[in-house]
């Protein structure tokens, strides 16, 4: 298990390096010169050249990658071109907003597991049919639309929940999380519940469940240890991957709800060609996604011993 974990982490680090390198390549093809954007149209060529030199923009991209990672080793991600503050500081300041949104969305998404389980056990019953219709409808609607309707209903009409900003103090922060979380999470509850239902039904028909029943093992125990435990790995893999989608939905949701966070930061940085900040946010989200998939893989190995031997 430990050897597998070490191996998995090495692979994760390689993926991060590859992703950042790929981003440098892509940035080469983006039209527009950051020096122009930052210094304005009236800057002298000498000034622009000096800035390019400082940002290593004239070097081959592989050299830029090298500077980026050697800076990273020393905790230096460069400086925000507009505010001149260190990027790392900005990231540390903004990350908790996004992390709390992703975490609460994941927690809400987990609701799909009991819903799917109940639907599978009471297959073709009213709850199964109803949750199926609702789930598929929710999957079909994009988070931005759900978000706007949530604001209209809960904030504008009912005036129950705040729609804008992130709030201060524990309760305020929680209240401010509700609508953005639902905007992203409702889709995922539907998705996960359908997925859990399908894999539960598959496992319920498997031979080893019949063996367990034939030995009179109590139903609760069968559902927990013989059905859910076998059905869950597929769901956990999807949840690991879903972090990436949740993060990209967060970009939109943070704009819709005017929430601070990595998503909004990334959006603003791309618009203003603020390369150090773009790199910083991409690095942060890559690390985040890779960590999430690594954790889901390790969880899978813990739940299903066969996965380890296949690797």
């Amino acid at each position: 298990m430990l050897a597998y974990a070490v191996q998995r982490i090495i692979v994760s680090i390689l993926i991060i390096i590859l992703a950042v390198t790929a981003l440098f390549v892509m940035i080469q093809f983006v039209p527009g010169d950051p020096a122009n954007v930052m210094l304005g149209p009236r800057a002298t060529p000498e000034l622009k050249e000096a800035l390019r030199e400082r940002l290593h923009l004239n070097d081959a991209f592989i050299v830029q990658v090298y500077y980026f990672f050697s800076g990273l080793m020393q905790g230096d991600l460069g400086v925000d071109l507009t505010s001149n503050r260190p990027v790392l500081g900005i990231l540390i300041e903004q990350a908790p907003f996004t992390a709390s949104l992703v975490a609460s969305t994941l927690l809400v998404t987990l609701l799909g597991i009991p819903i799917g389980t109940y639907a599978a056990v009471h297959r073709d019953g009213f709850f199964d049919k109803a949750s199926g219709v609702v789930s598929v409808s929710l999957i079909a609607v994009p988070p931005i639309v759900i978000g706007l309707y949530l604001i209209l209903f809960f904030s504008v009409s009912l005036q129950l929940l705040p729609a804008i900003g992130a709030g201060e103090g524990f309760w305020e922060i929680l209240l401010h999380l509700v609508l953005p979380t639902l905007a992203i999470g409702l889709t995922w509850i539907g998705y996960v519940s359908r997925l859990v239902r399908a894999s539960m039904i598959e496992v319920l028909g498997q031979n080893h469940v019949k063996t367990a029943r034939a030995f009179g093992i109590p139903n609760q125990r069968i559902l927990r240890a013989y059905v859910l435990r076998v059905a869950l790995p597929a769901t956990i893999t999807v949840l690991g991957v879903s972090i990436g989608f949740i993060l990209s939905s967060a970009v939109i949701v943070e704009i819709v709800f005017s929430r601070p966070g990595i998503g909004k930061l990334m959006y603003d940085a791309v618009i203003s060609r603020n390369y150090p900040v773009v790199m910083g946010t991409v690095l942060a989200s890559t690390v985040f996604i890779v960590t999430a998939t690594t954790i889901s893989d390790l969880l899978n190995v813990m739940l299903d011993p066969r996965t380890k031997d296949e690797n």
Binding site: H208, A212, A214, F215, G216, R229, D304, P305
Partner: peptide
Amino acid sequence: AQDWGKIRGKDLAYVSQDPMSALNPTL
């Protein structure tokens, strides 16, 4: 269901067709 629970695995035992899939792979 309760009555079955009292005799399955006690008075009645069952060995299934396919030994490959008859055991829980995760326990």
